[in-house]
Amino acid sequence: MEIAPALQIVLFAVFAAISVLGALGMATTMSMFRSGVFLMASFFGVAALFLLLLADLLSLLQVMMYLGGMLVMILFMVLFSSDPGGSMMAGMMTMTRVEKAFSRGLSRPSPMATPHGAGGGMDMAAGHDMSMTTPARKWARHFGWAVAVVLSGALVLRPVARATERALPDPRSPERIGDLLMGKYMIAFEGAGLLILLGIFGAVLLARPSERPDPEDRGHLRAAVDAPPPPPEEG
């Protein structure tokens, strides 16, 4: 199936914008939950770009593994953190323009929240150090810009030599990938399986209930779990 060139350019522009803006939203918004959702959008954009590049198995794997697996893990961890919605954070920090754009609708104006100066992103509110970013944010922004400009400039000014262009959409590409995995790259395949096994062992071992007590704020949850069930009602 051959797509018209104009449509190719339009689709590329749309999905590239989704990828980049999703990643930007992930990096700058004040709400951790929104970060997860922006990351989801970025993954979708990259999966669509994979489709445009005729790597169909990879795009589906991207959706399944990143979105179906890792993003769920990320959202679980976000929900276990403090202030996942970001309204407390957004109410307290002074944000740059980009951050404000991605954090719209988060903060509710309250008489308590007085905006503190954003000296390098450190905020002290009632002795609590609340901030989304480390003190390194100031030069990290410049560093990120520098990397983006240098790489993009190098690519635009010294374009990659005219590459050969003979790919047609190959409907049997998953078969070929499977052949390679089972044949030439069997060791890598088995090695990845071993690595996953070790990762599972490691993660379960590290996160098992240890001799260290649970934090105090989880004490009531532990008590609720350990308490004997209420006696059944009579009648």
Binding site: V20, M26, A27, G121, T133, T134, G144, W145, A148
Partner: peptide, 17 residues
């Protein structure tokens, strides 16, 4: 270029978050 932009944004997130 899209890859480069994604890389730079990810790098910013790693350092600054």
């Amino acid at each position: 270029v899209v890859g480069a932009l994604l890389f730079a944004i990810g790098l910013y997130a790693i350092v600054a978050q």
